[in-house]
Every structure is written in C-alpha cells, then in structure tokens.
C-alpha cells in the first residue's frame, strides 16, 4: 500500500522568498507530527498538502490523487487551521452545520451529528447558541476542530491545534487525535511545542528553513545520528565500580560521575554505539555484582533530536 500523503519535490516561492525547498516525504496512517521552529514552513506545507496553496514546483498526492485542483478530494480531508476563520456572528451549531453541508453531508440526521461532534470536542452545550465572537480561544479551537472532523475525513490536518487550550483541553484533544488514528485515520499535527506531540506519536517530519531535516520514527532518527553521541543515564547501587569497568569498553566515549551523582547512585555515559552498550551493560553488571535499578537515555527523545538537528546545526551553519 502506498503512502496516504506523498510529497514529491515540493518547492514554494513567495516572490523572491523561498518557503519550502524540494520537500520529499511520505506520510502513512496514524499520527505524524510536523515539527519545526516558527517560520520553518509547516503551515505552508499543510496548505499545499490540503490543496489550499499551489506549490511552485513538485506535487502532493493525497490518497493517490493530486491534491491541487481537486475539490472532490476535500470530502476526505479535514483541516483545522492555525488561524480563526469564522463568521463571528454565527452560533457554533450554525457554523458547523454550514461547514457540514458544504462538505456534502445530507440534511437527514445532520442535527444529531452536529450535536454529537460538539459534545465530542468538549464545547459546552450552553455555548452552542452564542455567537462565536463571544468565544474564548479554547472554545474557538474546539469549534474549528469540530468542523474539521464533521465529515469524518480519512486524512486530518491540524495546524497548531493545542493553541489556547488549558491542560484538560489538551488532554481531551490529544485523546480525540489518538482515537482518529486508532480507527484507521491519518492525522498530521503541526506544532512547535514538542511535549505536545511526544505523548501522541513517534512519527515525525522535521522541518527547518523550508527543508526536511528528518523524517520517520524519532528513535530511529536518533540512532542514525552517529556523529552525535547518545547520553545514557544509569542508576545502580555501585556507580563508581561500574564506571571503572565501562571506561575500558570501546563503545563508551565518556563517563561522567561526580560526588552528587555517586550519592544518588547515578552514572552518565556517552556512546556512539548504543546497541552494543545496551547488550554489554547487563553482562558487565552481572559480572561485577552491581544491581542495575534504572536505565534511560535522555537523548532518545524528540527534544534531543530537535535540539541537535535544529539548534546545533543552525549554530554550525549547517543549513
């Protein structure tokens, strides 16, 4: 089966400013986080992937069809925009109903569907008959999400969906996003707030300065960064003894241990071959009679990948 979204050599110019440079990526089912700092080109790429913006060069195919110039494809696409785009005088129910009708949902049963969806996104019932102009940021966000999901799209694009939501709201929206993915849908979530997506998915498409820096599973991406040593944190009962043995191993680049760490039973290692280290470590611990309590890699997460790819490279003039 081919990818749900197939991005091929997409370039976008705004006059003399280049927003995206030869973006090629394939997005499959499930949740994919579109990451990048502000101005990376995330919203432009979402615009192109939803057929809103025409690429200067290249093509995007969604569900096998070119997305530009095919409004019929919008039956299967839902977009929750970063910007508010409402008729401020309309009530939420009227707005969602209008959007549903434009999406081709028949009148029969539409009222029930609208109410279900507003309940689902957590918009309080007493707010339904109020003008949207009286809504808070979070309520607007929920209304936008409801219109994006009303027609049960197979592919959902959410551009900064958590903006303005309180922690409870974020949790609820995250649950909805997971639910869509669990039922076979494909969700692309754009954000520059990493901890939002860390709880949702490991699949990322990382952009900076209009280029793809990384694509795929965050852990695999991390493993492939061979020039950037992993940091591994070990908690055990005799850190000094373990450090002494591990310093002899070729796969270990550096060992960090000070009095405070020793008192806490902690030991920090740097390695370029995490796979070998993780295989070797239990064996050495057993030989020494050291009890391992905890093993973690603070580098094996999205934030570390993001920091390295975006910040470090930018500092080194890597782009």
């Amino acid at each position: 089966m081919g990818p749900i979204i197939d991005i091929r050599e997409v370039t976008k110019w705004y006059g003399s400013v280049i927003a995206l440079t030869r973006i090629t990526a394939a997005i499959g089912p499930g949740i994919t986080a579109l990451l990048g700092p502000n101005g990376a080109g995330k919203s432009t790429l979402i615009g192109i992937m939803t057929g809103q913006i025409r690429a200067t060069r290249g093509e995007v195919r969604v569900l096998g069809s070119p997305v530009w110039g095919d409004p019929e494809l919008n039956h299967h696409i839902g977009l929750c925009n970063q910007h508010d785009n409402f008729y401020e005088d309309l009530h939420a129910v009227d707005f969602i109903t209008l959007m549903a009708k434009l999406s081709g949902l028949p009148r029969k049963g539409l009222g029930d569907r609208v109410r279900e969806m507003l309940h689902r996104v957590g918009l309080e019932e007493k707010a339904w008959s109020r003008s949207i102009k009286t809504y808070s940021k979070g309520m607007r966000q929920r209304t936008k999400l409801a219109q994006a999901l009303m027609h049960d799209p197979r592919v959902v694009f959410l551009d900064e969906p958590m903006t303005g939501l309180d922690p409870v709201g974020r949790h609820e929206i995250t649950a909805i996003i997971r639910d869509i993915a669990a039922r076979g849908g494909s969700v692309v979530v754009s954000t520059h707030i990493l901890h939002e997506v860390m709880t949702m998915t490991d699949q990322i498409l990382l952009l900076a300065n209009g280029r793809v820096l990384a694509e795929g599973d965050v852990h695999e991406i991390r493993s492939s960064l061979e020039n950037h040593p992993y940091r591994v944190k070990i908690v055990c009962d005799r850190p000094r003894a373990l450090a002494h043995v591990l310093m002899e191993e070729d796969c270990v680049e550096a060992v960090e241990l000070d009095h405070d760490m020793e008192r806490r039973g902690e030991l920090a290692l740097s390695t370029r071959r995490a796979d070998i280290l993780f295989e070797l470590l239990p064996r050495r611990a057993r030989e020494l009679g050291v009890a391992l309590r905890e093993l973690s890699s603070p580098d094996d997460n999205l934030e570390a990948v993001f920091d390295f790819l975006v910040h470090d490279r930018a500092m080194k003039g890597g782009f």
């Binding site: 409004p71 019929e72 696409i77 785009n85 434009l102």
Partner: peptide, 14 residues
C-alpha cells in the same frame, strides 16, 4: 478579513 475564504476552500467547492 476573517480568513473564512480559506475555510471555504477546504470544502469540496471550487
């Protein structure tokens, strides 16, 4: 002004 044009064009209309 309200970006509603964008949301219309996300629906199956030309």
């Amino acid at each position: 002004r309200s970006n509603a044009l964008e949301i219309y064009l996300t629906k199956p209309i030309t």
